[in-house]
Design a protein around this nucleic acid. Structure first.
Lengths: 328, 328
DNA sequence: GTGAAAGCGCTAACAC
DNA sequence: GTGTTAGCGCTTTCAC
């Protein structure tokens, strides 16, 4: 608000000829009040265009009804949809959402954690990709993570990554691919994502195939990611199947394959991961493993609510689904 | 935070054997303090693991360093990129961002405006698509809008929509299209978007062509939008050019065209709008008019800062760019 | 150099 | 039914 002296409870009380308590009661609909008083107060509030100060309330109540959302970047089909779903659900529960994009700024994740310790937010949902922060190791914090292993005490909502890895690899194997390459985050990152790799590797071993994973950091700029795929096809011209760890990487793989003179899916089959709504819309032909984003959001919100209520909670794993397309 | 009695200034003061004033001074690095006192206090803070309560501070300072972002939905390539860019810039200025997705919930936009009046946020950047809200008509509010006309007193950051409309239409005309159809929001919506239509209509008139705009509400579910394009090609089989008002509609137009047995671009040329980064990545072949999203975010943040400082500001218009692709 | 006390705007005991 | 008052945790004027 601009600087004009804000109207406060006291001003309303004075105008209505009652005490601040009474005004507060009217405001919160609490305790016994005569019809007449209520009217007087309402009238005074109207006349002064009174707005209760939320911060003063927060100070007294020791809660802000704000929840932090910390993910790498909202400029991404998966995280964009996920954060939209989270916001919608939290809003209905009376929470507003503070959005933090931690990509390319390692300190940011910790800053948002500080908001929690500072009492500026009541809870936190994290899916950032940075490394272990000491402060997480504090039991009973109102924090939930999505697709990321933060610490022992913080529950994780994840899609069934192992299942996803198996579904994708099996499909490529069934289609006759001999040389399937997988892409994933660096193995050092503590994310359930690595389970996709496990599924891929187990199946490859079972079928007696060579397994190979290219590690691609999520934070890399797009052109550098594209360069990795160029390198991949240069180093492995025999590659006839790609199981990418997300849909945009799948697109980059297809671009690189075509650049290398290969046809998709005739020469190389490509399967992506995520199946976010805007990806499906823009690139409907992509074969992909779809994560249940709305359900993941709902599960995270449910867990957070319980956490906020001081209840113990368990991690949640949800099933994924293969969406057949024309690329693999 | 969980319920364990929070450590406060007083506790630190007691342990350090000084007054709360002194602790506050150490905390804020203000006034004269002996080296020794500073050390004592720091030690006490450490020992108690003290975290200053942000809300108490906010109450005194009468500012929260929170800025609201209200757009239809962050689950969209354009708004996703825009909000990510806004968050990055605002973060660097010391602001945190409260995200509101107003799509399919008309009351929400007003709720976020209330956060401003309640003192829960310091400023607001809006690009929602709902109808006139009375409370906006209050001069000098710290609000900036993006691509939306909110009220006379609120500055607008927009890309040059008229230019965009001309660029797209001209390209289709130059390519020999005879029957170009445009899609846009319903004309009742007060958005600079309508300038695209003006550009389109002026050129069509100049070239003596029939002009026709299909109005597609942004809030429609995707399948209903798709149905509009099916109808379009059924009603106008002669259509050989589409100037869509955004890239996802361009994609839907292409789908519908192909469903109707037309080849793109041989039979129908399609030009989209927005050119957001994730769209470019997933659908690089799309010919589109690209909005300068990073610059728009920067301009909005600049305007908001001035607004917060009580300065008068002017609306800003930025140039767009045609990105040639294979669809039109 | 440091401390006492008022006050930011609101809520809720407790009293009447 | 309604009012008085303490207090949420912090900052800052003013005094010493």
């Amino acid at each position: 608000m601009t600087k004009m002296a804000r109207v406060k409870l006291q001003d309303v009380a004075k105008l209505a000829g009652v005490s601040v308590t009474t005004v507060s009661r009217v405001l919160n609909n609490r305790g016994y009040l005569s019809k007449q008083t209520i009217n007087k107060v309402h009238q005074a509030m109207e006349e002064l265009n009174y707005r209760p100060n939320a911060v003063a309330r927060q100070l007294y109540k020791q809660r802000t009804d704000l929840v932090g959302l910390v993910f790498p970047t909202v400029n991404n089909p998966f995280f964009g949809q996920l954060e939209a779903e989270l916001e919608t659900r939290l809003y209905e529960l009376g929470y507003r959402v503070v959005m933090g994009n931690s990509q390319n700024n390692p300190g940011k994740e910790e800053q948002y954690l500080q908001l929690l310790f500072n009492g500026q937010i009541d809870g936190l949902i994290v899916g950032a990709h940075n490394e272990g922060i000491e402060a997480y190791h504090n039991t009973n914090l109102p924090i939930v993570s999505i697709e990321r292993i933060v610490s022992k005490q913080i529950p994780v909502v994840a899609a069934d990554n192992y299942q996803g890895g198996c579904l994708a690899t099996q499909r490529l194997l069934d289609a006759g691919c001999q040389h399937i390459i997988h892409t994933n985050y660096p193995a050092t990152l503590a994310t359930p994502n690595q389970e996709r790799r496990r599924g891929y590797e187990e199946l490859m071993t079972k079928y007696g195939r060579e397994k190979l994973t290219y590690e691609i950091s999520f934070d890399l700029p797009d052109d550098q990611k594209a360069a990795v795929f160029d390198r991949l096809f240069a180093e492995h011209p025999e590659c006839d199947g790609i199981f990418a760890d997300n849909d945009t990487n799948a697109r980059l793989a297809i671009n690189a394959a075509q650049k290398a003179g290969k046809r998709v899916p005739e020469d190389v089959k490509v399967i992506g991961y995520d199946g976010a709504s805007s990806t499906r819309l823009l690139f409907p032909d992509l074969t992909t493993i779809q994560q249940p984003i709305p359900e993941m959001a709902q599960a995270a919100v449910d867990l957070l609510q319980k956490r906020l209520a001081g209840q113990a909670v368990e991690s949640v794993t949800l099933p994924v689904k293969l969406i057949p397309g024309l690329t693999g």
